[in-house]
């Protein structure tokens, strides 16, 4: 797994737009040209990481609404966060500095989180980081002059 369980995770709102309907939240990563359907417990997880939270804190937030979670729920939550992290939708906010009170949300009975990814429109994004950063001589770069000629 690419994440540390002690880390806090937070929605990467600099790159992701989101909209929630009854039982599904749709994420659009407009930097990568990907989009996602979150179902089951995943919409509630997304809500709980609008402010930085650990896996345990997310689980506690779910349990506060849905009641005791089944065995394996924390592993499911960690896997969903790992997937969203790999897809650039979630950022890590560094290691925890101590437990925080679980956020409260309105969620129904627990169902394993589902993160369905769609990559069919990636070609619409014209960015090509390798090509672009080569042209710009690295990332970031500050050229010597950017004035408009009169």
């Amino acid at each position: 797994m690419g994440i540390e369980l002690g880390d806090r995770f937070v929605a990467n709102l600099a790159a992701v737009a989101h909209e929630a309907f009854d039982e599904e939240t749709v994420l659009i990563n407009f930097e990568r040209g990907t989009y996602f359907s979150l179902r089951g417990a995943a919409p509630a997880i997304w809500t709980l990481i609008q402010t930085p939270a650990t896996v345990a804190e997310v689980a506690a937030g779910l349990a506060a609404s849905a009641g005791p979670l089944p065995d394996g729920a924390e592993a499911d939550i960690a896997a969903a966060l790992d997937r969203l992290h790999q897809e650039g939708c979630v950022a890590t906010a560094g290691p925890t500095d101590g437990p925080r009170e679980a956020a409260t949300i309105a969620a129904g009975p627990y169902a394993p989180p589902v993160v369905e990814a769609f990559h069919d429109l990636k070609e619409l994004i014209t960015i090509d980081p390798v090509h672009e950063t080569h042209e710009f001589a690295g990332w970031p770069v500050r050229p010597p002059s950017y004035a408009v000629e009169p």
């Binding site: 014209t126 960015i127 710009f136 770069v141």
Partner: peptide, 12 residues
């Protein structure tokens, strides 16, 4: 585009 590149969007 002879400008500073300081944000991901600047790559576009």
């Amino acid at each position: 585009w002879d400008l500073p590149v300081t944000e991901p969007a600047h790559l576009e």
